[in-house]
Structure formats: C-alpha cells, structure tokens
Design a protein around this nucleic acid. Sequence first.
DNA 1: CGCCGGATTGATCAGTTTCAAGGCATGTGG
DNA 2: CCACATGCCTTGAAACTGATCAATCCGGCG
Lengths: 234, 234
Amino acid sequence: MLTQTITTPAVPATKVFTAPRTPAAPAIDQFGVIASCAGVIATEFSYRKDEEVYGEGEPSEYVYQVIRGAVRTYKLLNDGRRQIGAFHLPGDVFGLDAGSTHRLTAEAIADTTVRLVKRRSLEAAAGSNVQVAHSLWTMTARDLRHAEDHMLLLGRKTAIEKVATFLLEMDRRLAKAGMMALPMCRRDIGDYLGLTLETVSRTLSQLSGQGILVFSSARQIVLRNRQRLADMDA
Amino acid sequence: MLTQTITTPAVPATKVFTAPRTPAAPAIDQFGVIASCAGVIATEFSYRKDEEVYGEGEPSEYVYQVIRGAVRTYKLLNDGRRQIGAFHLPGDVFGLDAGSTHRLTAEAIADTTVRLVKRRSLEAAAGSNVQVAHSLWTMTARDLRHAEDHMLLLGRKTAIEKVATFLLEMDRRLAKAGMMALPMCRRDIGDYLGLTLETVSRTLSQLSGQGILVFSSARQIVLRNRQRLADMDA
DNA sequence: CGCCGGATTGATCAGTTTCAAGGCATGTGG
DNA sequence: CCACATGCCTTGAAACTGATCAATCCGGCG
C-alpha cells in the first residue's frame, strides 16, 4: 500500500512550518487562511504516481492541499467499476470530510506534493475562530457545487457534451500559455465522465478532426475554438 | 410563477413562532437546533403541487425544512433535459447554499408545507454561536455525501442497479408499516436516476414480476425482498 | 360517462460499450 | 546502439443497453 517516498508511517512529517501563505489568488487560498490560524501546523509530504493518499472508510485525520502534481478521488463498486468524483490540481484542497471517515479514496495521479494539516487542529481552530468555521463550510460548499454540476453531466449529458465540459473545465483550471497538459490518462477521464476510455479517445479524435482542438501529444492539448466547445457543452 | 396559497409575495409569513423543536430523531433535527438559536425566527408556508419554491440563480434568502409533502431540487440543460439532485421529504432541510444564490431549482412534488428561516439570521447566529456554525457545515456535508453517492450511481450503475438503489433509499426514508407511498411520478424518478420514465416503468415491472416487490397502486409499493434488492444494488 | 394525466407495454433505433487488433512512445537490457 | 517489452492510446467491428416512438391501459374526477 503505502510505499511512501519518506518512511514515516503514521505521522508523515517532512518540513514542518507554520502556514507559508501561498501568494495565489485570494478566493482560492482558503487553506492559507485556515492554516495560518493559531496552533495549526502545516506539513509537506510527497506521493509517487498511483500511490494512495487515503482510502474510503479510513478515519479522516488530515486535510490536504495539492502543491504540485494531481490527485483523483473516487468511489468503487464491488466489481471494480469506478467513479472519479473530482480531480485535485495545485492549489486545491481535498480530504475535508465533516464526518470522521473519508467518503472516497484519494490517489496521486502523478508524483505529487501536498501540504497537510491535522483535521483535529482545524476543528479546534473552528471552535474559537469564526473565520475558520466559515472557511470549512464554504470549502465543503464548493465541493457540493461541483458535485451538483457533475451530477447533471453524468445523468443527462451525451458523450460529446461530457468531453466538451471536461475540456473547458481543465482549460480553465490548468491551461498555461494556451496549452493544457493533462496529468491523467484516458481511463481516468472516462471514469470521471461516466464513459469508457475508448469513447473518450474517439470523442477527442472527433473534436481534433473538426479542428476544435490540436494535440501536441496525447495529453498536451490546445483548444482552438472554445466557443464551439461551449456550444456543445449544452 | 409564485401562485402561493397565501398572498404574501416577498416575505411569506403565516404562523410566526420561535422554533417549535420537533420531537424527531436527534441526528436529523439540526434544523431544530439552529432554529432555536437567539434571534432566529421560523415561519411556516405552503406550496401547491408543482409550485416553485425558488429558482436556480435566485438569491438564497431562506433555508427550508419540509414539514409535510415533498420537494425536488434540479438543474436543467438549455434543451430541457433535467437532472434531479435530490428529493426532500418531511424533516429534510433544503435550500442551504453557502453562496448568495441557489444552485438548483426547488419545486413542490405534492402539496407541501415547509418551515423556513432567513438565511441572514442563520449566518448571523453562526457568527456568534459555534454550534450553529458547525451545523451549517455538517448539513452541507450531508448533502455532499449524498451527491457523491449519487455520482457513483449516475456514472456507473446499470438501470436495474439504479432502480434498486432508489427503492432502498425510499424504503429507508419513507416506508411506513412496510409500505412506501412514493410522492413522485415516473418521470421524476427517471430524472433522478438518469433514465427515461419508460425504463423506470419497465424495470419496476420486472422487479414486480420477480416477486421482489408488490404494487398496491403505481406509487404504493411493498418491498418483498430487500436482500435481493441490496444484491442488485452492486 | 367520458376525459385526462400518468403508467404500462411493444417495436425499433441509436449511442455507447465491448472485444479485438495495432500503433506509438518510453525505457531497459543485451 | 538496437531489440524488445510495456503502457497508453487509437481505431475498427459487433453487440447490447437504454432511448425513442407509438399504442393502449388504468384510475380519478368533472
């Protein structure tokens, strides 16, 4: 299971520091706000590609923020069918469960570094600091909003609409210099969109054929016509 | 739009009272807890079948609890395809959005009575009362948990697995004396499960044929074998 | 009694999955 | 430096699940 880069089993601690306060966008950095509160210690840790961060049902001891890399969170059916609920990219917080156990499994998609804080210390801070309590709520509410949008996609959109939505989401979240470098494979995309990897591949080829996007490589994509994608998105 | 039973447009007020504290199950009645806090006034109001409670995008002025009846919350695509995110039954809280606007539309499925409180007063209470702040968080977290389970259903379950899951959920939530009286039509069920109404009907007929359930009428169902349903549920 | 919305059932259709083969890039060992 | 193994992606053909179109059926109500 946990073949960590650093062999610290229970409390994985590398560099310990108090909230380095990333200079990122203000709306995004709720984690910075809460991490900078009294007594909350943030730790950095790394996972290798495909390594599990935590499993569904495990006690939720930590809350995480992606520093570098990417994480998928998913649920499984007993025969192995998988539904990825979200991809977590640099800056994103994940693993914040109000209950005592994690509801999904989290795995590194690529080599990944995270910042983490103890959930207990967050809850303690929330008990005395209204700002922190409010942040916990709005962060969970953001996840809920994403889930609500995603239910619409999974239940009612066609394959091409799903892929168009996915591309626009990734473009918004990780495009640099007009290009996006997808960290995940076709199977991950399929399991996120409720499709097979073959359907994802075919649909991307189709969009490429229509000149809506261009591949530098299979995972390096340039969008050529966001408007037509947005139109397909329904 | 709002053809209310009582003609109070902006602030629909009937009987005004301070938190009657329902004697329901403790875990369920978060609303009772928050409504009983200083300054939070609860109001009762009724909606007729198919009447809109609030629309997607509208400012979220109130938070609601179903007293009697049932409510569906949903999102639409521009061509009318609909995804129902949840059914809200007596005791359930809905309309609690952390942002300033509602993310889904809410409509009464049948004639429905709700209790409501001003969102502003809740937020105010949360600012001074840690218990209330915590309740807001856990209520949103409960919605998120449901959404995560439902994404798995929408993205990865087959028609029969979806219907089985639905029946078990409704059995758990509204079965009285071993029978459940569904408040919603086949189309609502389909739009909740990401299926057509015909597929829902066929699947229910199939389960009936297998003796797993019995119809008193189209919406009055008795489960005869929960175990076999749970097995199908995947 | 006859109307009407909701539900059922049948026949056909289409989109997506499944099964299968092959390509391309990367990395490793001879 | 090349040969080969491996993982990921693409593409094709066939099969299947659920959707669509259409025709009753049923129950409640004016």
